[in-house]
Amino acid sequence: MPEPLATWTWRLERVRSGRTVLTRAQAATARADLVSDRSAHAGEYEGYDDEYAAALDELEVLSRQANRSDDLLAVLAADRRRAEREGAAGDVPATTHGMGRARASLAGEHDRVPKGLPDALDQWVHRLIRYRAGVKVISPLEAARAEIRLRNEADLNPAAYRTGVAAGYYGRVIRELGEIATAERPGRREVGSRVRGLGDVLV
């Protein structure tokens, strides 16, 4: 396999698994580079038509994703400021007794989440339930990466994310992750604030 195609096939697999992210500009540049390389070295791409077409299709989707203008650079800056505020002390661990009460009180909300959501979406629905209750910390950087991964997954598989019951959960999760990603404070909301759960009306 030609080296540029092998590189982007590998990177796109990492994007799908959430281990790396691509901005819209990066995806557009990568697609143009692949097209240019194939034009210059057509013989090397013989036998790799399917891999080449798949890479171009995915990069095209990613190049049209709805990136925020403040994406990763702003998120990294916010995460750095958060780390500076918290210093070396880190998060204060919750007591076993308090965690037990929180888990018990959240059981009903977790149970209301329907079965059959896409795995990545289901994971973040449950994590955000714990986050809103104050028993889970989500950093701005983690939220930004999750938001981009979910947007990528939804663009590549819209039927699973943007139809039926999943669509409401997807929209709410994306909104909440976006709020956390651009927050100036640490990734924990005040427990006393009133936030509607994902089990409530979603849209």
Rank of each mutant, 00 (worst) to 15 (best):
V135I: 13
K136I: 01
S139R: 15
R127Q: 14
A133T: 07
R132D: 05
R132K: 15
E142H: 10
L128D: 00
A143L: 10
R149D: 00
K136Y: 10
L141W: 09
R132V: 01
R145I: 10
D122L: 06
R151K: 14
I138W: 02
W124P: 01
V135D: 10
R132Q: 10
L150I: 02
V137Y: 11
A143G: 08
A146G: 07
R130T: 08
R145S: 05
I138K: 03
A146Y: 02
R151F: 01
R151S: 04
K136M: 13
A144E: 12
I138F: 05
R127L: 14
A133W: 11
L141E: 04
V137H: 14
A144G: 12
R145Q: 11
L141P: 03
R151C: 01
Y131H: 15
I138R: 06
R149C: 01
R130W: 04
D122G: 06
G134H: 13
S139L: 14
R127H: 14
G134M: 12
Q123R: 06
V125K: 04
L150Y: 00
Y131W: 15
V137K: 14
P140H: 12
D122Y: 05
R151N: 03
Q123T: 12
K136W: 05
I138M: 09
G134Q: 13
W124L: 06
P140F: 10
P140A: 13
R132Y: 07
A146I: 04
L128F: 08
P140T: 12
R130F: 07
Y131L: 09
D122K: 01
R149S: 02
Q123H: 08
R127K: 14
I138S: 08
V137N: 12
A143T: 05
A133C: 07
R149Q: 08
A133F: 13
R130G: 06
E142N: 10
S139C: 12
V125L: 11
L141Y: 11
K136E: 14
P140W: 08
W124R: 04
I148P: 00
A133P: 09
L150K: 01
H126D: 14
Y131M: 07
N152R: 05
R145E: 06
V137C: 13
Q123K: 12
L150P: 00
I138V: 15
V125Y: 03
H126G: 05
L141T: 08
